[in-house]
Nucleic acid binder design. Structure first.
Lengths: 104, 104, 104, 104
DNA sequence: ACTGAAGGCTGCCCGC
DNA sequence: GCGGGCAGCCTTCAGT
């Protein structure tokens, strides 16, 4: 309490100020991007696209991407579980087989 | 149908592709910013700040800004409701008086 | 599964029926009220009132009420953030002072 | 302007007051019902029901009801189109036949 | 009929 | 892991 500058619960006011400003700055950029996205959708609409379907499409693509990501992660887990085996041709074959099984 | 390139409901595939890519690109940037914001909050937390209160503070500041905006809009509505009256010196004085009252 | 009556995912059909009926009953009443409100606006309009301004007025009054509520909540958040301080006479004075400042 | 009481754009303040109060009263009741509905959904949830599916069910039932309503209206249109014919036994038979055809 | 806003629903993120 | 809280999306309705 006797230090130079105000403080807030033991936090220097400058630190707080910095944090608030950074958050607000980032939020503004985020909002600007949201606006941009909305504008692209508007453009799509005036080009005759069905916005609802378009959103669905984007959602599905995002989902697909996430699943690929997921598969990659899983594959890595298996690789580690199999140990160095995965580094050999035989091990790779085993991993590939397992992957096919999971996908099917 | 005999044009070059596929089309989808009369929309050129290239046009659709462009739109999808732009949306996805913008969304990625938006998500990145969301991540950044989360990180700043995490930093704030580990600096000893009460994140809930911090969020409240940010919300409040944003709200205040929005309210100023709102007041402007509101004033315009009232001005229109007062009709041409607002176009006269007397009317302007009335509007100005009302504005002061509301702001105080 | 061997109990009397059908069931749906472990839920007694009667229970489900009761829930659905209650929701539908309440929804009907809600819709009826929406209709009543619309009628009052119509009456206001044919009495020469500017409906747009009237809606704005109602919104404003609601907003004001909500803000008072909000302030109470906010105060509570701050109080908690101040911790046990608020439980002491000095702390209470500080909270009261802050409240006066915010309201003014 | 020289009447007793204030006025607002030629509308008696009492009239305005009455309208505002009625709207606010009705809105409160409407909000209360919305809360009740939310509570029933909450109850359904804690009874193990899938709220999303439940909402879908309610929506479908509402839709069905609207379609029956629609059919009734349509039937009435046909009746009128058939004129007094509908008042005779032969006409009723024709209407009944038409109705069966539509439902099938 | 279209547009723009208001309210309700859904999916996500945080805290427990 | 879950349940509550919050932001974004969708739907509906008033207005033009």
């Amino acid at each position: 309490m006797s230090e130079i500058g105000h403080n807030t619960g033991g936090i220097a006011a400058d630190r707080l100020r910095s944090i608030v400003e950074r958050i607000e700055r980032l939020s503004e950029e985020k909002d600007a991007l949201a606006t941009d996205i909305r504008e692209v959708y508007a453009e799509a609409k005036s080009a005759g696209l069905d916005v609802k379907v378009l959103r669905q499409l984007i959602r599905e693509r995002r989902q697909d991407a996430a699943e690929i990501e997921e598969r990659e992660t899983l594959l890595e887990v298996y690789r580690r579980a199999l140990g160095m085996l995965a580094e050999t041709p035989l091990g790779e074959a085993a991993v590939a087989r397992e992957t096919r099984r999971r996908v099917a």
